[in-house]
């Protein structure tokens, strides 16, 4: 059995988008995630109307995956063999709070199904799967901080048990203080890959 390699990686944080370590977009005029995500969308022009129905964290995950997979040809692989393994620390806490505000005892009772459906973190996996018709293995881990070991261990196990050949994996988190998306694409061709290499490319933008 062959090895897995890093094909691409994309990091979005602090109003900047880095692709394979290079700055590809930034918007210093905006000071909030909402206008920033809109700004990235306008720049990318993916013409994907489902974007406007998503909550913020799904928008962030979607845009990061859009950068990651643009110009990538996965047609050599069966859609069942492309896995998505994501993680974060805050699950869907911002949308949870929105839903909670709509059902508070003080402020009136008006829960909305279009908000509630986004109170599950794996909806991000669902949105990326729908966009690219990916039908492989899924897993969403909740962990305090980005953990390359957790992700690479799960990925290696799925690969060695022949449950997937290509992996879209990483971290997408939003809380009241910050947001961050870091996704990488692994397949049987590309640059060398191991836990240390994932840590290295993640930490490239540590101080930005």
């Amino acid at each position: 059995m062959g090895k897995l390699f890093i094909n691409k990686y994309c990091h979005i944080k602090n109003n900047k988008v880095f692709l394979d370590g290079k700055l590809v977009f930034s918007d210093d005029e905006v000071h909030d995630i909402k206008p920033f995500l809109k700004s990235v969308y306008r720049f990318l022009k993916p013409a994907y109307n489902k974007f406007f129905k998503m909550d913020e964290i799904s928008k962030l995950a979607y845009l990061c995956s859009e950068y990651l997979l643009q110009d990538v040809d996965l047609s050599a692989f069966n859609k069942d063999d492309i896995a998505i393994v994501l993680s974060n620390s805050d699950s869907t806490s911002i949308t949870d709070q929105n839903h909670q505000n709509s059902i508070s005892k003080e402020g009136g009772f008006f829960p909305s199904p279009s908000i509630f459906v986004y109170t599950l973190p794996n909806i991000m996996i669902g949105e990326i799967s729908i966009r690219h018709k990916l039908k492989g293995e899924n897993a969403f881990f909740i962990v305090e901080n980005f953990d390359a070991g957790l992700l690479t261990n799960h990925i290696n196990n799925l690969y060695l048990t022949r449950k997937a050949k290509v992996f879209i994996a990483g971290w997408v988190n939003i809380n009241n203080d910050s947001y961050e998306a870091f996704l990488f694409l692994l397949s049987p061709c590309g640059k060398k890959y191991n836990k240390g290499e994932i840590e290295k490319v993640y930490n490239q933008h540590k101080y930005i």
Binding site: S91, L120, P121, N122, I123, I125, N138, A139, F140, F141, I142, V143, D147, L150, N153, H154, N157, L158, T161
Partner: peptide
């Protein structure tokens, strides 16, 4: 060990069992 936590909607339980068996 660091506790592993899976949150994958209504398949979380079966996914957690599959994951445990795989490890």
């Amino acid at each position: 060990n660091k506790a592993i936590c899976i949150s994958n909607a209504c398949i979380s339980g079966v996914l957690a069992l599959n994951t445990a068996a795989m490890y």
